[in-house]
Amino acid sequence: MTTLTMTRLDPQSRAARRGMSDISIRNLFIIPTILFLIIFNIFPLLYSLYYSFTDFRASTNAPANWVGLANYRELLNDPFIWTNFTITAKYVIVSVAGQVVVGFGVAMLLNRDIPFKGLITTLLLLPMMLSMAVVGLFWKLLYDPSFGIINYVLGLGRFEWLSDPDMALYAVAITDIWMWSPFVMLLSLAGLSAVPKHLYEAAAIDRAGPLYTFFRITLPLVAPILMIAIIFRTMEAFKTFDIAYIMTSQPTTEMIAIRLYKMAFQEWQTGMSCAFAYIVLIMVVAITNIYVKYLNKVKER
């Protein structure tokens, strides 16, 4: 099939003179990619699926015993795991909602003729380009109760952002909002500038007020691209590890990725953690599917 649609190799070309056919050139480009995918993605995926049904521990030489669904049963009955899921859900909701509100709001502000618009946009995108670990480390300094600038500016005295068990998760979420709002802003800005100007003129002629115009014209037309931003950010927030791991070690901030890390590389329960990873994978796929369904519904219009 593919060979039928392929353009024939020019017989005068250098490749042809070296005795290469167009099929061999195709293989030259595609096979490395496929090999890479198989070795680093597909093989580990299947390998860990197998381990998730065993009691394998990578720290010992003991052979892996087949235990069937025991790992999954144990995990789903473990109340501590459910606490991790609750924490993660709370974090995802706060962080993604915050990013959408801040990002979309800033995009609305930027979506007009202002001086230095390009420069401002570029500067606002900077947080996104930093490394997660770096962001976590210097926000730890900003939050510091004794010399952190946040307490100084807000006049909060010695407020414990990261060691207060009730506050720590929100402190991490705020950092995440700071870092990733620009991403939502960038996509929203693309969506906003794609709304034709004449629709706003038509709405003005139709005597629609600013709020009515926003909710009936702007928001519905930006919704599809905003939805894509939300899908990306939800998936990312769901698997958050580095920021939270670096900034704090409260039990109230132990999200599933951290729990998974501890299970796999501190407790060496390799089989069990593989099963856990699969549960997380299924959940992420499920959530993404809901979003994509909704996105398709929005896009139909």
Binding site: P196, H198, L199, E201, A202, R216, I217, L221, R301
Partner: peptide
């Protein structure tokens, strides 16, 4: 409007 400007 010339471009109709219907709300899509």
């Amino acid at each position: 409007f010339q471009s109709f400007s219907l709300y899509p």
